[in-house]
């Protein structure tokens, strides 16, 4: 058995893994539909007891966590060196970004999907003040992203595109797909986004982002499935944890 990737293209870390692998790494896509609750199924729990995507499987080696998966793929397969360069300081910058990303980007930019799409699907509502607080947290994080990480460089870790840019852009794209004008009034970040997308290629971006870009439309037309009861407890817990 070759490389298998368990992904749901609604999920930001899955986008990053998908786009990266599509750069010439052969893999079998194993779709896991989170809205249908497929991640809480028995079959998938055998693959990842944490019931989260993305997951990589290669023979009997199983790996979770997008950052670990991306690093593993870039070391194992012949991929361009710039993604995860061996230069000591550049690589340190990538890890510095990934650490901060876990604290300040990951949880925050995923919230709008919950408030606008997933919570309503479950008949739950996120209070207005939490939505406002989240918006403020996103603004603060964007400011740091621009000032501390991007600075006057072309990409987050230097003059070339790296795993850090991929992880960052994919998180930011989710609120953008939901109508948040994150790049408005931020010309530096907007130009960075343009550079990353140009590098990845419009076609691949379109393909990877298709599901998330059409999510509001699908929700409006009531085309999204209601998550099965087995998934309710974890989903409601996630909603309750929105600060």
């Amino acid at each position: 058995m070759g490389l298998e990737l368990y992904l749901d293209l609604l999920s930001q870390p899955c986008h990053a893994v998908y786009i990266f692998a599509k750069n010439g790494i052969p893999f079998e896509l194993r779709p896991v539909d989170l809205v249908k609750g497929q991640h809480v199924s028995k079959d998938f729990s055998q693959v990842n007891s944490l019931q989260k995507v993305p997951v990589l499987k290669e023979g009997d080696f199983i790996l979770t966590e997008s950052a670990a998966i991306l690093i593993y793929l870039s070391c194992k397969y012949p991929t361009a060196d710039h993604w995860y360069p061996s230069d000591l300081q550049t690589r340190a910058r990538i890890h510095e970004y990934l650490g901060w990303h876990a604290d300040c980007i990951r949880g925050t930019f995923g919230v709008p999907l919950w408030t606008q799409v997933l919570a309503p699907l479950m008949g739950a509502q996120v209070p207005e003040e939490k939505v406002a607080r989240n918006r403020a947290a996103m603004d603060q994080a964007l400011q740091w992203l621009e000032d501390k990480f991007l600075g006057d460089k072309a990409f987050l870790a230097g003059q070339q595109v790296t795993l850090a840019d991929l992880m960052a852009l994919e998180e930011l794209m989710q609120p953008v797909a939901l109508g948040y004008a994150l790049f408005e009034g931020r010309p530096q970040l907007a130009a960075w986004r343009g550079r990353v997308e140009a590098f990845l290629g419009a076609e691949l971006c379109q393909e990877a982002h298709g599901p998330i870009l059409s999510i509001l439309e699908q929700a409006a037309k009531k085309l999204l499935p209601v998550p099965p009861p087995a998934a309710h407890a974890t989903m409601l817990r996630r909603i309750a944890r929105i600060p």
């Binding site: 998966i69 593993y72 990934l98 650490g99």
Partner: peptide, 17 residues
């Protein structure tokens, strides 16, 4: 070793949240 290292990376990514 690639797989052994990946498991360290996995833990280091998981623990944050």
């Amino acid at each position: 070793d690639l797989q052994a290292r990946a498991l360290v990376d996995e833990y280091l990514a998981w623990q944050h949240t």
